[in-house]
Design a protein around this nucleic acid. Sequence first.
DNA 1: GCGATCAGGT
DNA 2: CACACCTGATCGC
Length: 689
Amino acid sequence: MSSFEGQMAEYPTISIDRFDRENLKARAYFLSHCHKDHMKGLRAPTLKRRLECSLKVYLYCSPVTKELLLTSPKYKFWEKRIISIEIETPTQISLVDEASGEKEEIVVTLLPAGHCPGSVMFLFQGNNGTVLYTGDFRLAKGEAARMELLHSGGRVKDIQSVYLDTTFCDPRFYQIPSRGECLSGILELVRSWITRSPYHVVWLNCKAAYGYEYLFTNLSEELGVQIHVDKLDMFRNMPDILHHLTTDRSTQIHACRHPKAEEYFQWNKLPCGITSKTGIPLHIVSIKPSTMWFGERTRKTNVIVRTGESSYRACFSFHSSYSEIKDFLSYICPVNAYPNVIPLGTTKDKVIEILQPLCRSFQSTEPKYKPLGKLKRARTIHVDSEEEDELFDDPLPVPLRHKVPYQLILHPEVFSMTTISQNQPEKLRQSTGCFKTESTQNSLLTNFIDCEESNSESEEELEIPSSVQEDLGPVTLPQQKVDVDVPQWEVFFKRKDDTTDEGLENFPSSTETGGSQSPKLFSDSDGESTHISSQNSSQSTHITEQGSQGWDSQSDTVLLSSQEKNGGDITSLNKGAYRPKTKESIPTSQMEQNVLCPKDTYSDLKSRDSEITTVPNIGEPTTLSCGKHIPEKNRSLNFSTHSDSQSSSDFEIPSTPEAELPKREHLQYLYEKLATGENIIVERKNVHS
DNA sequence: GCGATCAGGT
DNA sequence: CACACCTGATCGC
């Protein structure tokens, strides 16, 4: 639960994710995502009244969040006062004090947060420095490095403060299986059950919250079965989600809810009330998404745990694990970091103790003891050289250092801007202006570059395979050799042989599943302890493909690919994917480009109220007009269930093409056992029996 | 009747 | 062990 009070030290006149108390005086509001604990006060009469008086006050959020929010009649009064901002589109906002007329300019950029549909992080740039408010997020290791707009001049921006989602910022939550692993584990479990007969159905016992959509869309895509839900009107303009949901109860996968659902389940009744199909009783299994976490030294895990005759828990997390948080923060390396959440059982001081070493404020005062294990090391950067880099870098995706292809440098510190969005999407106008580069103190910054390194993490990765091999007997873990010279995240996402994925289509994803089948199906691994919680997972509007690959233009399909070769996490909800359809259906990529170009469908005049401006690119290198944009990428539509998991996790035990793969029949057999609850002989060596 | 808060549950 | 809710009881306006 977020304990963020709504304001940031650097920009106290804006409020984020809190709308009560002091926040009632804010000049502008921001909502990172549509979860109730981030909407406190948002529909209170006091704020409503203030809106009526302060006509220049607006709420800014992603298009998806706006859509979800306005679907609820309780928030309808916000309709004319919400301005949605496209993901990854720097936008200038004027913060005006209505009493004094005082005005401050700020540029905000929304970055996908991977928490739930529409969830974003806010990057603010203004006179008091650049700050990042993460909202709630789940980003895999290395994802920050792939976010274009966190960079400039090929390096991460100089960020003063990060207001961080520290939900799992405790070593106890060291690792959480990746989205891909969790997804493929669930996928195979569901598959093994529903393919038995039309009367075999699955109940996904999800909570009432956004964030499971990527699970639904992926299952539907892979299995060709829509998911039954209670409501879907909030997705009416998000075809990529909508198409995978249904209100028709006759489907085999349900995610409907009812206050007495658990009770119903006891009686073999689904939450939606049905118990049979054409007179024949259903065979129901329940799968409850829950957070499962593992200690630092845990070698492997099962993402599916059987909890009863017909019930299972499946790993699913909306938030980044301890190691993911550390990876994220250490990459950003801000001057300061502030926790938005203090997990129960820990204290603010403890959380800060963890965050501080990853910040510059600490590093500069501490002896620079940088063991080889460090991932990044300090280096001095000259602005000039940065620009050079920019110009001459090769456009190919380069691992850590992000380049911004297709850009032209204008003047180092002045940017032209085009005004676009307005309150009403259809109206737009344009204008130009100048913006001064943020970091003035940039000439000599201490920045970090990747180090070839050897750090504990990679050590683990290297070790894990071997131990896993021992444990698993037949299933050997391919050496995911991590080349020390290679940027770490590649280790997680890249698969040696991408092409193999396709062929494996139906092959149960070995990974988690594979793990589960192994002896310790329902228990935990030998390593450390396993933990389970009932959380949910989530995802957001986010990008699957990392890096410079863009999303594809087929707006529709976007979602899902389970793990693609790029391995990243599957987050399918791509920026494009969940873009509400309200505007036009411009192919995503195209739309992106258009954002900065006059020709938009929008036309119009600007209203002086809400001043919004899209800034081509902020940061050292200035981008010219449509330049911001990410190279297009063809999103792979293949959904190989496995690759991701296998490649990305520490947990995975799986098989890779080169390794000895479990036989399909074998896995199928185990899955069925798992699904039906039949006894599984737990033999370490020979799972096959 | 409404909201805010707390307890309890999933 | 956490999360993001929901329900119900109580209190105050």
